[in-house]
């Protein structure tokens, strides 16, 4: 397929197929400096993505998911201070100049945002917006860009792409607009696609359509998919691995199946319990934890979840648990994890 070749020649020249992961984030920290004080939005997260993998980052709002994604895209506002490392195919991306990053964005990593209304320019035809994204990065002329744009529209399963090319965003439904946004993100065949709450604004049927589209596209083009969401249910249905974030830190990481077979970290359990289940009785109260995520302007001494944790003990308040690998492929940061299904 043409898109696959585009993905191939769009990637940087030294695509190494080897043990090194596609995108490797280590000890990433993002701090926002302002007169009102510092906000430690991301406090040292590490993970990696392999080609073709689907990874989900889960967490409440304000846990630092978007800021992490923005750091990976290098589109943080100027007030942000980034330390740590983000390696794409072994190449360090933190501290690169704007010009070098321009090529990295779009061709290596692309992003789909939450709100399709606001990610599209209302005064521009959708086709032109896709074509523009193509010509910014690839050496194609107008006609070729036009053809490629139509091909992309077809790829995201928009019926009658030749006609839709000339329509304006307001003439499309919410789901259709999100498809256009995805087409823009895919324009240059990125190796990693970040979908930040890409379906949160949509209703269930559209959400299912868009998620299926994303997974199909992933199969076709071999991109890695990093989906960011606050909905564990969505992650369970679509991701291979799940990372749970809380207060700027990764608190648990596991393959999806194992995670749901036995959660270790109490926060993950709380997230899971709070989802209304299709199989519960009506009017049953949901088990829910009180409180709110901590203020990120101070780094707490102990476990950030301690004030809300049902399992909390004194040592949790004294010392923050580090994220460690405790079982094959399973990491968590907790002194008193649940043990369901452990030890087999």
């Amino acid at each position: 397929m043409a898109s696959a070749t585009a993905a191939g020649d769009a990637a940087p020249p030294d695509v190494r197929l080897g043990p090194s992961p596609l995108l490797e984030v280590s000890d990433l920290r993002v701090t926002f400096h302002s007169r009102a004080g510092n906000v430690y939005a991301v406090q040292g997260i590490s993970f990696s993505i392999e080609p073709g993998q689907t990874l989900a980052i889960i967490g409440e709002s304000g846990s630092g998911k978007t800021v992490s994604a923005q750091a990976m895209m290098a589109i943080l506002p100027r007030t942000a201070h980034v330390t740590g490392s983000i390696r794409f195919n072994g190449e360090e991306m933190v501290g690169r100049s704007e010009r070098e990053l321009r090529d990295y964005r779009g061709r290596c990593v692309a992003m789909v945002f939450q709100n399709p209304e606001r990610s599209l320019n209302p005064t521009m035809r959708v086709g032109s917006q896709i074509a523009e994204a193509i010509t910014t990065h690839l050496p194609l002329d107008r006609k070729q860009a036009h053809e490629r744009a139509i091909e992309l529209l077809r790829m995201v399963r928009i019926p009658a792409p030749e006609r839709r090319f000339y329509e304006y965003p307001h003439q499309l439904s919410g789901g259709m607009r999100q498809r256009v946004v995805i087409a823009i993100a895919l324009a240059c065949g990125p190796a990693v696609l970040i979908a930040d709450e890409a379906t949160t604004a949509l209703d269930v049927t559209t959400q299912a359509q868009i998620m299926d589209l994303l997974l199909d596209l992933q199969e076709e083009t071999g991109t890695a998919l990093l989906m960011i969401s606050h909905d564990l249910g969505l992650a369970a249905s679509y991701a291979e691995d799940v990372i749970v974030m809380y207060a700027g830190k990764v608190v648990e990481r596991a393959p999806t199946k194992e995670l749901f077979a036995g959660v270790r970290m109490p926060y993950t359990q709380a997230l899971l319990d709070a989802i209304p289940r299709i199989d519960t009785q009506p009017h049953v109260l949901l088990p829910v934890i009180g409180g709110r995520p901590p203020d990120l302007s101070v780094i707490p001494a102990g476990c950030p979840f301690a004030p809300r944790c049902p399992e909390v003990q004194q040592d949790c308040r004294d010392q923050a648990p580090p994220l460690k690998q405790h079982e094959p492929e399973r990491w968590w940061a907790c002194w008193h994890p649940y043990r369901k299904g452990a030890g087999q």
């Binding site: 990053l101 964005r105 992003m111 945002f113 990610s119 599209l120 990065h137 823009i184």
Partner: peptide, 16 residues
């Protein structure tokens, strides 16, 4: 946080 997640399309690929 909402403002961040809804950056305009130019930011998908373009510069800052």
């Amino acid at each position: 946080a909402d403002l961040l997640t809804t950056a305009p399309a130019q930011d998908v690929l373009g510069g800052v």
